[in-house]
C-alpha cells in the first residue's frame, strides 16, 4: 500500500471515529446526569436521532441575516473537524501531524468561535448578542491558561506537535516521568476544556434561560440542518478536548504501530478512556452549580496559575 493511500485511509478512519463518537459522548453525559438526578433519562444514542431529525427539518432563516448566518455552521463544522484531525485518537501518529501543532489547533477552534460570535450578532436579537458578548469574554480568559498548560506539557515531550507528544509519552512512562508539573498542567487543561466546551460550571448546555446561557444564546436562531451541524460540531469539540486530555496524559494502550491488532486495541482503549472522562464530566456537572459569569474569572484564574506553576515546577525539577 503506498504511503499516500495509507494516510488517506487513516484520515478517513479518524474522521469517521470522531463523527461517530461525538454524539455518543453528549448522550453519555446526559445519561449520567439523569441517573444522578434519579431519572431514567433518554438513551445514550438519543443525540444521533436528534441530529438525524434536525437534518430532515426545514430550516428557517431570519430575514435580517446576511450570508454569514448560513455559512457559519459549515465553517464551524469544518474548523472543529480540522482541529480534530490534529489530535491523535486511537493511533499515536496521525498522518496530518505535519499540518498543524497544538497552537494551530487552538487557532482553528478560535476560527469557529469567531464565526459563531458573528452569527450570534447577525440575527439582530438581543439574545444572540448577549451570547456572543459572553462567549468573547470566556474565550479571552481561557486562551492564556490553555497556551501555558500546553507549553508545560510540550516541554516534557520536547515537542508541540500532538502526535509527537503522545507517541513519545506512550513509548516512555507517560506522565510518571514528571508527576507534579504534569498534574498541574492536567488540572489546568481540564478546567480549560470545561470552559471551552461550554460545560458546567462555566456554561450550562441544558439551559435556555436568558440569564444563564452562553453557547445556546448564540445559536438560538438556528434550526434544521444548520442546527444539526452546530450540535454536531459542539459534540466534536468535546471529543477533541477529551481525546487531547486522554491521550496526552494517559497515552497507555494507544496504537503506536499500524498493526491491525494494535489498532483494534487502540480503538477499544480510546473508547473506554473518553467514555470515562465523559462520565467524570457528568458527575462533576451534578456536583457543582453553574458559576456566575463574573465568577468564571476566579476559576480560569486558577487554571492560569496552575499552568504557570506546572511550568515553574518543570524548570525547577530539571535545572
Amino acid at each position: 500500500m503506498s504511503p499516500i493511500i495509507q494516510s488517506l485511509l487513516l484520515v478517513t478512519a479518524q474522521v469517521i471515529v470522531l463523527l461517530t463518537v461525538s454524539p455518543f459522548l453528549v448522550g453519555l453525559i446526559r445519561k449520567v446526569k439523569a441517573r444522578f438526578q434519579c431519572r431514567q433519562g433518554a438513551s445514550v444514542f438519543q443525540p444521533y436521532a436528534d441530529i438525524a431529525k434536525l437534518f430532515r427539518k426545514q430550516p428557517v432563516i431570519s430575514t435580517t441575516t446576511s450570508w454569514i448566518f448560513p455559512a457559519t455552521p459549515y465553517i464551524l463544522f469544518a474548523s472543529t473537524l480540522s482541529a480534530g484531525l490534529l489530535v491523535p485518537t486511537f493511533i499515536s501518529q496521525t498522518p496530518l501531524n505535519f499540518s498543524g501543532n497544538i497552537i494551530a489547533l487552538v487557532y482553528l477552534l478560535a476560527l469557529g468561535t469567531f464565526f459563531l460570535i458573528l452569527a450570534g450578532l447577525d440575527a439582530g436579537s438581543a439574545f444572540g448578542g448577549m451570547g456572543s458578548s459572553r462567549e468573547a469574554i470566556v474565550a479571552s480568559l481561557t486562551e492564556p491558561a490553555m497556551i501555558l498548560s500546553i507549553f508545560a506539557i510540550a516541554l516534557t515531550a520536547g515537542s508541540t506537535n500532538l502526535s509527537t507528544i503522545v507517541h513519545k509519552t506512550a513509548l516512555l512512562e507517560g506522565i510518571a516521568t514528571d508527576p507534579s508539573p504534569h498534574l498541574m498542567a492536567l488540572a489546568a487543561l481540564f478546567i480549560v476544556a470545561l470552559a471551552e466546551t461550554g460545560r458546567v460550571p462555566v456554561d450550562n448546555p441544558a439551559t435556555h434561560l436568558e440569564l444563564t446561557m452562553i453557547h445556546e444564546a448564540m445559536v438560538l436562531e438556528y434550526s434544521g440542518r444548520y442546527l444539526a451541524l452546530i450540535e454536531w460540531a459542539a459534540g466534536l469539540k468535546l471529543a477533541v478536548f477529551l481525546s487531547l486530555i486522554a491521550n496526552v496524559f494517559a497515552p497507555w494502550g494507544i496504537a503506536t504501530t499500524l498493526a491491525p491488532t494494535a489498532m483494534g486495541i487502540g480503538l477499544l482503549v480510546y473508547a473506554v478512556k473518553i467514555a470515562g472522562l465523559a462520565v467524570l464530566i457528568g458527575v462533576l456537572e451534578c456536583m457543582f452549580a453553574k458559576l456566575r459569569l463574573f465568577r468564571v474569572t476566579d476559576l480560569l484564574g486558577v487554571a492560569f496559575i496552575l499552568a504557570l506553576l506546572g511550568l515553574l515546577f518543570f524548570y525547577i525539577l530539571r535545572s
Partner: peptide, 9 residues
C-alpha cells in the same frame, strides 16, 4: 514532591 505540590494546589 508530588505530595508537596498537592499541598500547594
Amino acid at each position: 514532591d508530588l505530595c508537596s505540590a498537592l499541598l500547594l494546589l
